[in-house]
Structures are given as C-alpha cells and as structure tokens.
C-alpha cells in the first residue's frame, strides 16, 4: 500500500502540475498527508491517531440526546 501511495502521489503530481507556489505547497502537503496516512494504515503507526475522537465527543453525545428524546 505504501508503494502504491508513493507512486500514485508522483503520478498525481505529474498529471496536473500546480502553477503557483501556493498550489505547489498545498499539493505537496496533501500528498505528504496521503503518504503519512497510508504509512499509518500499513504499519499501524500512531495507533492513537483518532480523527473521529473529537467528533464523537461533541456530536456523539448530541445525537444520543436526539435518540433519548425520541
């Protein structure tokens, strides 16, 4: 998966090359994110990375209220 991610990132950079520095930075940031996320998935690094945690905390309890009301 990591190999796939890296190759795909290079390809995506080649398919549409960003024109300004801002686009370049953003593109590279996202691509690095991709590689990072796939590293995390493939190697189980940072097992505590929980994007959903905060969402769950805030909205999960809100939804529970909805269910309770009904």
């Amino acid at each position: 998966m990591i190999a796939m991610a890296i190759v795909a990132c290079v390809v995506s950079y080649l398919i549409h090359r960003p024109t300004s520095w801002r686009e370049r930075v953003l593109t590279w940031a996202i691509l690095l994110c991709v590689v990072g996320l796939s590293l995390r998935t493939a190697l189980h690094l940072w097992p505590n990375l929980d994007v959903l945690g905060p969402l769950d905390l805030v909205f999960g309890s809100l939804t529970r209220v909805i269910y309770k009301v009904l």
């Binding site: 998966m1 990132c9 549409h16 686009e23 991709v34 990072g36 998935t41």
Partner: peptide, 21 residues
C-alpha cells in the same frame, strides 16, 4: 487555486488513504 483540477487527483488520493486510516 486556479482551478478545481489542481487538487482533483491528490484529493482523491487523500480520500483513499483517509478512508483506511
């Protein structure tokens, strides 16, 4: 950004990696 195309492919990849992560 200049066009929505700029991030079309990297964004798709981020969705791919993100879905699994």
């Amino acid at each position: 950004l200049s066009s929505h195309r700029t991030l079309a492919v990297p964004g798709a990849l981020s969705v791919w990696a993100g879905s699994l992560a």
